[in-house]
């Protein structure tokens, strides 16, 4: 049981540690990449030339993600042959056409927040109160603490929240 509780914490710590090492150019967009097979390949290959802002905002079908990945390879993205499929699969699964756009927690209204899957009404109210009191949130960890959420619960919403436009 303890191991199960610890796992999300570990994931979060690893993510935070990685975040600390990233150059400023990333601007925190990689925080919106949920765990999964292919994630690290995306981190390694796609950030050579650009940050992940456009990636985490894109909503595409599998066919369109295939086109995009191939297009990036032609432009010079450093992707190996065996990585094409996992990267395409990860992006298609993670950023499919039906996924809502990430919501800016620092400007979102109560109505917009309440539409988010897995964010209860009471939680939305708590978020707004914390935002009014302490000003804009800088990153996911600051928000999680403000909401006093367990890392495991927070994982359910964190990839749909952004902190800047």
């Amino acid at each position: 049981m303890r191991k199960i509780v610890m796992l999300p914490v570990l994931v979060l710590l690893v993510a935070l540690a990685a975040s600390a090492q990233r150059p400023q150019k990333d601007e925190g967009w990689s925080e919106l990449l949920p765990p999964g097979e292919g994630r690290e390949m995306v981190m390694t290959s796609c950030t050579g030339c650009h940050n992940l802002k456009s990636t985490v905002h894109a909503r595409k079908s599998r066919a369109d993600w295939t086109k995009s990945v191939n297009d990036m390879i032609q432009r010079g993205a450093q992707i190996f042959p065996e990585e094409i499929e996992p990267i395409t699969a990860y992006l298609s699964k993670t950023f499919g056409p039906d996924l809502p756009q990430p919501l800016n927690v620092n400007t979102a209204s109560r109505e917009e927040l309440e539409k988010l899957p897995n964010l209860k009404t009471e939680m939305a109210a708590r978020l707004l109160a914390a935002r009014d009191k302490a000003g804009p949130f800088k990153n996911s960890e600051e928000l999680r603490r403000a909401l006093a959420m367990e890392p495991g619960d927070f994982e359910k919403i964190r990839y749909l929240l952004k902190y800047r436009n």
Partner: peptide, 12 residues
Amino acid sequence: RLRQARQQAIKA
């Protein structure tokens, strides 16, 4: 390896 990936992508 990068060139192989490029060839693979071109064919698509």
